[in-house]
Structures are given as C-alpha cells and as structure tokens.
Amino acid sequence: MEWFESVWRHIDAAFIEKDRWRIYLNGLGVTMQVAIFAAVLGIVIGTLIAFMKLSARDNGKPTVLSRIANIYIDIIRGTPSVLQLLIMWFVVLKSCHNGILVASITFGINSGAYVAEIVRAGILAVDKGQTEAGRSLGLNQVQTMRYIVLPQAFKNILPPLGNEFIVLIKETAIVGYVSLSDLTRVSNQMTSTLFDAFTPLIGAALIYFVIIKILTILLGMLERRLRRSDNH
C-alpha cells in the first residue's frame, strides 16, 4: 500500500501537479511537428534523388544527375545527424532563429537520403518485364512508370517508408542540442525540477512507445489494403 502511494505521489508530481502534463504535451507537439515536416520534405527530396540516381540505370554509366545524387547520399549517410543539426543551426542557417524550421529542414534533408534508397529499391524490385511489356505496347517511359511501375513499387516502398518515419520520430530526440523543447528535452529538464529521474523519463518513453505503436497499426492496415490485388 505504501509503495503504491509513493508511486502515485511521484506520478502526481511529475505529470498532474501544476498541470505539468501540458509541458510534455507541448514537448510532444514539437517532436511531432519536426517529424512530420521532415517526413514530407524527406519524401519529396528522396523521390527526386531516387529518380536522379535511376537516370544511370539503362546504360550502366553514371549521369551528371546520378553523380550528384550519389554525392548527396554519401555525405548525409557518412556524417552523424547531431553534427548535421549543429552545422545547420550554427553555420548554414545561422540567420534563421526558428528552431523548429531549422530542425525540420535538417531532418528532411537527412531523411531524404534514406528515402531515396527506399524508393529506388522499390522501383528496381518491380520486374523488368513489366516495363518491357508497357514499352512494347507503345507507352512511353513516363506512362509506363506512372500506370504500371509506380503503383507496384508503392507497395514495396510503403513498409520501409513507415519504418523510416518511425526512426525519424525517435531521431528528433536530439533537437535539444539546438535548444528546442521537444519531448525528450522537457522530460530531461523535469528530472532536475523534481529530483526524480525515473518517473519523467519512463513517462516520456511510454509516450514515444504509444505514438509509434499507433503508427505501426495504421501502417499495417494500409499495407493490407494495398496487397489486395495480389491475392484474388
């Protein structure tokens, strides 16, 4: 009984007293804003980079576009995202004081490199015969892509893309480095306010977990929907 009371006192202090839950909620808001903006930007950049990279496919020789895409992917994957964030905040976008915007752009550019590989792999996984059949009927390359290859590639792309979004949500936990009050940072600050590390940190972890669990379920539903044409 006493143990329960003690636990409850901690929970009360960490989340309910003085409406502290609002602080976590605001933190979660920052986390989700950055993650969603970055995901949208990442998909746009990633798709563009994927097609730039694919421009080299037919003859095997690299093109100017595919070279640029490769350099971009190399740089992004070859450096830690914390450093990318610090460089953007203190150097490249120094004059921009909107932390959420800077973080969104940074993570969007970062995620774009990974999305590019996901999109490219998804397109390449569609059997070459599908393209050949389309072209042999007189459809041009764009029509074949649009009506035949991309709808099939989308099914390949969706699961790893969902995974990428999940990684992105958790990766935003480093925005505290540029003084953004996201979920991780506010719960970390709360530990020193309360002299209790356990409750706020476990609480924040639970919030991340629930958000991602919900997302996983939604993605699973969407995936099953898309697979319908495979089985009847």
Partner: peptide, 20 residues
C-alpha cells in the same frame, strides 16, 4: 513509341500488369 504500337509482343513470362 509510335512504331511499337504496330508491333505486338508476347513474352516468355507473360508480363501481365500485376496491379491491374
């Protein structure tokens, strides 16, 4: 593309469009 409209092709592995 115009020329291919007049030449039908049938493949060993059928290559029907799986999404349609």
């Amino acid at each position: 593309n115009e020329i291919r409209r007049h030449m039908g092709m049938v493949f060993q592995h059928f290559n029907l469009f799986n999404n349609l």
